[in-house]
Nucleic acid binder design. Structure first.
Length: 488
DNA sequence: CGACCTTTGAAGCGA
DNA sequence: TCGCTTCAAAGGTCG
């Protein structure tokens, strides 16, 4: 989204969004937003039933509501200063304190069955997983100094919300333990429950059969669960060092984040890990020590499709890789052909961008929205999600900003040489994107101006070549909702 | 089959 | 530094 406040820069652009959203006419807007958010699904449903139905209520549900109005510079500046200051203080490194004051740390979920019959997470499980939000496992040192420079620019919500308080001093072990408790969830059926920041959890079972973990991983076994558990390094989330074998069984702690979509935040293929930056993990001292100690390259079978470090990151995607290495009796010929294929795949490795806060939010909420209404079209769902995003409280958004920040951190750790520019170049369809953008801009100049938000839940009107759509959507008796061109 | 749509945020890039 | 562009996810829709 274009920065509403150009001055926001990249350090607080997102924060600006959040801050402004809550601070200008905060209460009134809050109420409006909440009502708006609650109306969303109803709007969608009703509008889907009858697209011509006009949502009169949304007269107040204006674009201005969706888009936070320009915020008070005074407040923002003040807030930014204080927040940055707080960030610096917190940060000797980052994460010295947990960022979410309202985090439901003390809840005992029903771990035995975190999933609903439809495959989605039960509310309890969701709460549990939120409780166990791994990114909040804030440890001192380590990543902090390395990332401080970059993260100082990040809209870390940790800067925003007040005093933080971790309820679990021994959270790491507890986290692991509880994850293990939740191992009853069949992993194979939920391979997508991958912690976006925990690439280790993305292992496929064939690489690390739970019953036969790599020998080097058996040195640290959780006495409670019997599942190998590597020691927890001080500078990284405890979820990283989960042994693949154990990880493979674990519905990752962000399952609530990516619960029902059938994919991890970063889709990963079993054979897709072809790191274009072979030294990536070795460059970083902490990461390399951490990872190499877990998965010494020489101990990994050569046919393993994992990176030498054993850490496939879901951001790495081979465009055409659908490799199922479940069969060990592959003929030599096929192996040779596979080798060739892999070589080709190396060239096609695509390291995806880390997800931003909103993307992470969408990951979590999409299925929920889809489940609550019959709507399936992503474009429409995303509109709702966009509104809901704005309707979130500061703390709720902070959760995702923090996650996104961690995501970027991990990404940087794993791929120090990676740049978003790589994907720019990799995408040979830039022209298409550009065309689309131009088209959007042209539309936004007209329709959006005339559509403050007549019915947000309706599929967006984007086809200027078909001005009659307004009549189709709103009907003749709702001409007041027609856009300008349609009214002519 | 691939582009498009839609959302927000991060990052790149040119001026 | 500013403003614009691209990409990230998702899945239905359309040509």
């Amino acid at each position: 989204m274009p920065q509403l406040n150009g001055g926001g820069g990249d350090d607080l652009g997102a924060n600006d969004e959040m801050i402004s959203f809550k601070d200008e006419g905060e209460q009134e807007e809050k109420i409006s937003e909440n009502l708006s958010a609650e109306r969303d699904l109803a709007d969608v449903k009703s509008s889907l039933v009858n697209e011509s139905e006009t949502n009169q209520n949304s007269s107040s549900d204006s674009e201005a509501e969706r888009r936070p109005p320009p915020r008070s510079e005074t407040f923002r500046d003040k807030t930014r200063e204080s927040l940055e200051e707080a960030a610096k203080r917190q940060d000797g490194g980052l994460f010295k304190s947990p960022p979410y004051p309202g985090y439901p740390f003390i809840m005992i979920p029903d771990l035995s069955s975190p999933y609903l019959p439809n495959g989605s997470l039960s509310p309890t499980a969701r709460t549990y997983l939120q409780m166990k939000w791994p990114l909040l496992d804030v440890q001192q040192g380590g990543l902090q100094s390395r990332q401080a420079l970059k993260d100082a620019r990040s809209p870390s919500p940790a800067h925003i919300v007040g005093p933080f308080c971790w309820e679990f001093p021994g959270q790491s072990d507890l986290s692991l333990h509880q994850f293990h408790l939740s191992n009853k969830v069949p992993v194979v059926q939920h391979p997508h429950h991958v912690h976006p920041l925990t690439p280790l959890i993305t292992y496929s079972n064939e690489h690390f059969t739970p019953g036969n973990p790599p020998p080097h991983l058996q040195t640290d076994v959780d006495p409670k669960t019997g599942i190998p558990r590597p020691p927890h390094p001080p500078d990284i989330s405890p979820y990283y060092p989960l042994s693949p074998g154990a990880v493979g069984q674990i519905p990752h702690p962000l399952g609530w984040l990516v619960p029902q979509q059938g994919q991890p935040v970063y889709p990963i293929t079993t054979g897709g890990f072809r790191h274009p930056y072979p030294t990536a993990l070795q460059v970083n001292a902490s990461m390399s020590s951490l990872l190499s100690s877990r998965f010494p390259p020489h101990m990994l079978p050569p046919h393993h499709s994992l990176h030498a470090t054993g850490i496939p990151h879901p951001a790495i995607v081979s465009s055409n890789v659908k490799q199922e290495s479940s069969h060990s009796d592959i003929s030599l010929n096929s192996k040779q052909s596979e080798a060739k294929k892999e070589e080709e795949k190396k060239k096609q490795v695509h390291i995806k961008k880390p997800l931003n806060a909103f993307m992470l939010y969408m990951k979590e909420m999409r299925a929920k929205v889809v489940a609550e209404c019959t709507l399936k079209e992503s474009a429409a769902i995303n509109q709702i999600l966009g509104r809901r995003w704005h309707a979130l409280t500061r703390e709720e958004q902070a959760k995702y900003y923090e996650l996104a920040r961690k995501e970027r951190q991990l990404h940087m750790q794993l791929y120090p040489g990676w740049s978003a520019r790589d994907n720019y170049a990799a995408n040979q369809q830039g022209k298409r994107k550009k065309r689309k953008r131009e088209k959007q801009q042209a539309e936004s100049n007209e329709h959006r101006e005339y559509f403050p938000n007549p019915c947000l839940s309706l599929p967006p009107i984007t086809d200027l070549s078909a001005p009659k759509k307004c009549r189709a959507r709103f009907g003749l008796d709702q001409q007041n909702n027609w856009c300008g061109p349609c009214s002519l």
